[in-house]
């Protein structure tokens, strides 16, 4: 998984994200924490830069979005179409079925998913054997981590300048949290 350094203007979100150095993940098990105040484009970074890059690089990934309650309808539908009993299952059961049928995935993106701590623990438990990189947005004082052997790395989002039509945001790796 590689994100090249450079500036990524996201006009529809009124943001311009500047990645200060090439970001490479996947060699060692990593838990990558995206941090920064609200409105600086962490979700936009995931949805407009990271996921398209993963698709281009053909890296299989799983994504649980910030609006998980909305996404849940699509997961239920997906499992129903796959012949699984997803509609009637409870959430942990549904997540297990979905994760198990994606055991080839190498990246798991969790956008503020630790607002459901039990589900997050469950996700780590059932996916840590095959996932190489977790990418997580979290606003908890102590974000939930998968633990060893995953190295914690932090990607910090900082406002550079609010001038001009786009909010300028810098993204750089900081010392591990």
């Amino acid at each position: 998984m590689r994100i090249l350094e450079g500036t990524y203007p996201l006009k529809d979100r009124r943001l311009s994200l500047t990645v200060s150095q090439n970001l490479e993940f996947g060699e060692t098990p990593t838990w990558l924490h995206l941090t920064g105040v609200n409105g600086l484009g962490k979700t936009s970074f995931i949805e407009k830069i990271l996921i398209p890059a993963l698709k281009d690089q053909k890296v299989p990934f799983l994504y649980l979005g910030q609006d998980f309650r909305t996404q849940l309808y699509t997961l239920k539908a997906l499992l129903a179409v796959s012949g699984k009993d997803g509609v009637r299952n409870n959430i942990p059961g549904l997540l297990s079925q979905w994760v198990h049928q994606n055991h080839h995935a190498r990246v798991f993106i969790l956008d503020e998913f630790d607002k459901y701590p039990d589900h997050t623990r469950h996700i780590f438990k059932i996916s840590r054997d095959f996932i190489r990189t977790y990418v997580a947005v979290s606003h908890l004082d102590k974000p939930m981590q998968p633990g060893a052997p995953f190295d914690a790395r932090t990607l910090e989002f900082r406002e550079i300048s609010g001038e001009g039509p786009l909010l300028q945001v810098g993204i750089e790796e900081s010392t591990p949290w």
Partner: peptide, 17 residues
């Protein structure tokens, strides 16, 4: 309103892409 978001999520599922 919700259709676009559903389509977006479905495009992230490896099973469908």
């Amino acid at each position: 309103r919700i259709m676009e978001r559903f389509k977006w999520y479905l495009d992230t599922y490896q099973e469908l892409t």
